[in-house]
Structure formats: C-alpha cells, structure tokens
Write a protein that binds this DNA or RNA. Sequence first.
DNA 1: ATGGCCCCCGTTGGGGGA
Length: 264
Amino acid sequence: MRIATWNVNSIKQRVGHLLGFLDEAKPDVVCLQELKCQDEGFPRAEIEAAGYAVETLGQKAYNGVALLVRAPLAMSEIRRGLPGDDSDEQSRYIEALISGEDAAPVRVASMYLPNGNPAPGPKYTYKLGFMDRLIAHAHALMLDEQALVLAGDYNVIPEPEDAADPAAWVSDALFLPETRTAFRTLLAEGFTEALRACDPKAGLYTFWDYQAGCWQRNQGIRIDHLLLSPQAADRLVSASVQKHLRGLDKPSDHVPVTIELTSR
DNA sequence: ATGGCCCCCGTTGGGGGA
C-alpha cells in the first residue's frame, strides 16, 4: 500500500499536476493540504474519474485538507477536525480508516499544522496549542494498537540537517526549540518518522520557497512528514520524496513524500 | 528567509504563507 502526502498550495491551481502524480505513482492513499477552497469548489469529478474516493475538509481561501483513496480501498470512520478545541474554525485535520479486501486496515490522517510565524505571538500560541491537541489525540489513537499514519505538512524542521541553511531558521516558528520539543514529544508517543527511518542522510527536502531562487540553489527544508505507529512501522518497506515535481511549470512549493507499506 | 514569489479575494492592494 502506497501512502503519499502533498501540500499542493491550491488544489485548483494544481489539479493537473495531481492527476499526473496519481497516474505515474499510483498511490493508494493521498493526503492533501492547503486546498485553499471550500468543499464545493474541490475538483472532485476529475479525481473520482481517476479512480479515487474523495473526502475533504475545505475552507474559503485558506487551509483545507483532503484524503484520496484508490479503489478498491475505501474510507470509513471519517473524522473532520482535530479534537480538543470546539472554537477552532481552521480546516487542518481529516482522518479516516482505510480498508480493503487485500490489505489490513490503516488509519490515516491528513493534517496541515499552523505555520506559527511571527513567534512569539498569537499565531505561535495557536501552533503550540494545535501541537498539544495533536499529541493528546495521537495518544488516544495509539491505545488502539493498530496501524496508524499521521501524515502532512507539520511546519516543523525537526533537526539542523533538515535545512540547507539551519542558521537562517533559528528564530523561526518552524525551528524554535519549543516547536522541536513538541515534535519530539509527539514522536515519544511511539511514532517512527518514516523518511528519516528509511534514509538517514542529510539534505532531503520537501519544500523550497518560491522566492530568492531557493529551488535553483537547493535552499530547501524538510517539513512534510509521515509518522507511523509501531504496527504501521512494522509494515514499512520504503519512503521517498518526489522531488521532480518541484521542477514543473507552476509547481507547488512542496513536493510529495510517499511511503510503501506491506499489505498486512 | 528575502532583492528575487505565489495564491487568495476582489479588484489594481492587502493578507498569508514558510
């Protein structure tokens, strides 16, 4: 079973690239972030025509997450929104149980963690609060002792080797000590970070800013992650970054990260 | 990591992203 995560930075702008990715990579599950549209604006028909079921949690102009699942796999137990704050209006979390005849079930979440800049400030407070809620929810899910994949744009640079120029990020919300501590606390619930587990070398990036020739100079950062429960990690075969998609015309500033799990 | 962009909404500028 192949599971991909991709911050597309507007699904309407990127539907062509997404359909190309579905055709070439044939992922079974795709976690999308930054749809930047409401549910009624999501290009559902084109994606369903490619053989995928679609569940979205959209929002006008900002945020927005989705799960795509390739037939004959199907979704159930869909959860929209991260528990723990009923006043949170931002569309940043969707989760479903993925199952099919030939594969053991996997619970998958697609999430878009807040950026948090400028820090300190209310946006950073919201980011840390979101991470606290995520840790609590992950803890509850872990009690099931089932295969679980928390995938998405974490807006966290875990370690200095995950940035081409770590010194440039020392006071940024993506790399502040409190941010990295919260991420490590989440990992300590028992998760394996899939790409790092498969490929420990430095210099693997998933985001390159549109500005200042960052892509041309390979000034990237690694902020898109897949976290695996022990039952999912036991099934981990490989993890890879689809870097070539950053070189297309009108690319997203993020590229997909894809993992392969054994079917059971 | 800002000189350099891109996307949204809704118009020709402002908010947001990372």
